[in-house]
Design a binder for these strands. Structure first.
Length: 146
RNA sequence: ACUGCAAACCGAGCUAUCGUCCCGGUAAAACGGGGAGGAAAGUCCGGACAGUACAGGGCAAUGCACCGGUGAAGAGCCGGGUGAUGAAGCAAUUCGUCAACAGAAAGUGCCACAGAAAAUAACCGCCCUGCCACAAGCGGGGUAAGGGUGAAAAUGUGAGGUAAGAGCUCACAGUUAAAAAUGGCAACAUUUUUUCCGGGUAAACCUUGCGUGCUGAAAUGCCACAUAUACCAUCUUUUGAGAACGGCCCGUUCCAGCCUGUUCUUUUAGAGCAGGGGGAUGGAGGGUAGGCAGAUGGAUUCUGCAGUGCAAAUUGCAGAACAGAUAAAUGAUAGCUGCAUCUUUAUGAUGUUACAGAAUCCGGCUUACAGGUUUGCAGAUUUU
RNA sequence: AAGCCUGUAGCCCAACGGAAGAGGCAAUAGUUUUAGAAACUAUUAAGUGUGUGUUCGAAUCACACCAGGCUUA
């Protein structure tokens, strides 16, 4: 009985995930070019979403990638590399799980967007808080580029 | 058994789903394998490696400083010596801890306050003596035995000696340097002889000895893209000036010594003048910032056995392990076991937490560290 | 990653190895004023980032840590 219960739960979970199948985060979906990042900070628009500051800019390019994003944490509030790595991983994970809606919207309009998140909070967050704030930021972006 | 300190070691494990970096695999997938530490940290030492056109020498700069061993090397490690210091002991001695541990007798500087005086010591005192009838007073000289100081006062004690004194002389003790003998590879120790006794400071300048060329993976090489053989200043272009040798000098080596016109000598060619062009250095800018190599497996680390050595370490054999990103992978969620805390003692609840994240690579050092294990030392109590 | 610099009252800063430390702003109290500001007078506030050493003596010299800042293209 006990094992059976868990087996069912597990299979349900996997089915839900496989239907979407888009929770990927490959090398191509990250913003890596130094040139593009500098242009984004210089010319792009930005807004604050609680503990996150978001830079965003449409770009022209031949590659067919609707969304590229990067994450940064300043050394002012987090002196230890461990903490900075932790925050970057949490934001990246939250974005990975929630970006699909925006991605498909952009793909439908044939637009390409650069994004950069900067963590501006002063304390080490937990995953739930980061997830919530990232979702809010992504919703705001959907309204802008509708 | 408990507490504290120190040292060494460990730094939870397994499973599932999603995701990620590298390698293999594939036409593309699927799939398989690997993916953070003892300090990855601080950047404090030492190397490897790369560039700089390394002949060689000197100066400057900079580092080190008892001896031997170890190792690629070191300001590391191991062993020893000397000195200081703590504990135990009647003592001999034993057991620890620490040391930038060459030179102050090459020279220069500094030594506040106090004190006569702080380094060529005469302020008081003591002694001799001149002026003077004597005293007092003034002057000349000798003298470091005595003088409330100070961190430090001119080796200490005793005797002789003297006008008074003085290592002036002697004895003992201490101390500097040298020689010899014995022990030791050596530092050094012990003994004997001669000699010195002229404060401290070299983590003040410095002297002596030894070592080091400088720069640093954003090094460097190649490919691609882009641009500007541009601009300004100085120097130079026929014999005495320039450049390189990554501070300077000697020295060595290298480059340039071109073109046009004109004048003179005149076969070529050479010299002078003018102009052009070239070169070097500096200034101020412009472009690119993509890819590949460097780049991860080598003085490698660990384990076992055997050998050498007091030890650090090392030799042989066997086995195992070793990430490779570049706005930068190593993450998220769930469950089980283990562990900790609380309440209850079938169990339940909460937490899984320390210091901390590779960035060219190695060897050390230093610092941080929840909890656990082991060893050593100290403490007080309990039991036998 | 590589390399360099700085820590002194609440703040800004000075001090040749020598009384344990100078100023300015601020603070507190007083004078002045009906009250306040300004001005004037007085007072308080450091033991020199931490530790160890060298020295008779350390803010100063040396070493090791801690904290903060800067440079590179």
């Amino acid at each position: 009985m006990f094992y059976n219960f868990f087996y069912n739960r597990r299979t349900d979970h996997t089915i839900v995930l496989t239907t979407h199948q888009q929770y990927t985060l490959g090398k191509e979906e990250r913003l890596k070019s130094r040139k593009q990042i500098e242009r984004l900070f210089k010319e792009g628009q930005s807004f604050n979403s609680g503990i996150l500051k978001v830079f965003h800019q449409l770009k022209e390019g031949s590659e067919n990638i609707p969304l590229q994003f990067g994450v940064g944490v300043g050394t002012r509030h987090f002196k230890k590399a461990v903490d900075r790595n932790r925050i970057k991983r949490l934001v990246r994970e939250a974005c990975r799980l929630q970006k699909n809606e925006l991605q498909s919207l952009l793909a439908a309009q044939n637009k390409q967007l650069n994004l950069f998140f900067i963590y501006t909070g002063k304390e080490l967050p937990d995953y739930e808080l980061v997830s919530e704030k990232t979702a809010a930021a992504l919703n705001k972006l959907m309204n802008i580029y509708k």
